[in-house]
Simulated assay, not measured.
Amino acid sequence: MAADRFRNADVTTLEFEKRYIHKQGHPIWASVTVSLVSSSSGAPSHFITHIKDITLRKHAEQALRESELRYRELFENATDMIFTTDLDGRFTSVRGLALQSGLLVLPRRLRCLGCGYG
């Protein structure tokens, strides 16, 4: 428990994330901050605990991870050529099986520095 962590280390505040189960059975994520309050003599007196619901943030982080995975799989396994450019029109990434296999060769003016092709 938190009291043991305070006794075994020279800390006065602990922060961690924890998953709780709601009484209706669904998970709730929380950011927990526990602070040790000491008396004027320096002896531990009591704890102050702050619990913040971060369930929506956790759902958003999971949705972002899933979206990034879908994009990466699409980008890396595309049979069509897919590319990105910066605001100056320079290629920043180029992918596609035709390009990787050498069936498609970019003209020199379109080559992408750092993309591994051309």
Rank of each mutant, 00 (worst) to 15 (best):
M1E: 14
F6E: 05
R7V: 15
D10A: 10
D10Q: 08
V11L: 04
T12G: 12
T13Y: 04
T13Q: 12
E15Y: 08
E15H: 12
F16S: 05
E17W: 06
K18M: 15
I21R: 11
I21P: 09
I21E: 11
K23E: 10
H26W: 07
P27E: 03
I28R: 00
S31R: 15
S31N: 13
S31C: 09
V34H: 02
S35C: 07
L36P: 04
V37H: 09
S40K: 12
S40G: 13
S40Y: 11
G42I: 01
G42N: 01
S45R: 07
F47K: 05
I48E: 08
K52H: 12
T55V: 06
L56P: 09
L56F: 10
R57Y: 10
R57L: 14
R57T: 04
K58W: 06
Q62H: 10
A63R: 07
E73H: 15
E76K: 05
N77Q: 08
D80M: 06
M81N: 02
D86L: 03
D88Q: 15
D88T: 12
G89L: 02
G89P: 05
G89K: 03
F91V: 07
F91C: 08
T92E: 06
T92L: 04
T92D: 00
R95Q: 14
A98K: 09
L99W: 06
Q100N: 13
G102A: 06
L103E: 14
L103M: 11
V105Q: 15
L106W: 05
R108Q: 13
R109C: 09
R111H: 02
L113H: 12
G114W: 02
C115E: 05
C115Q: 06
C115K: 05
Y117L: 12
G118A: 02
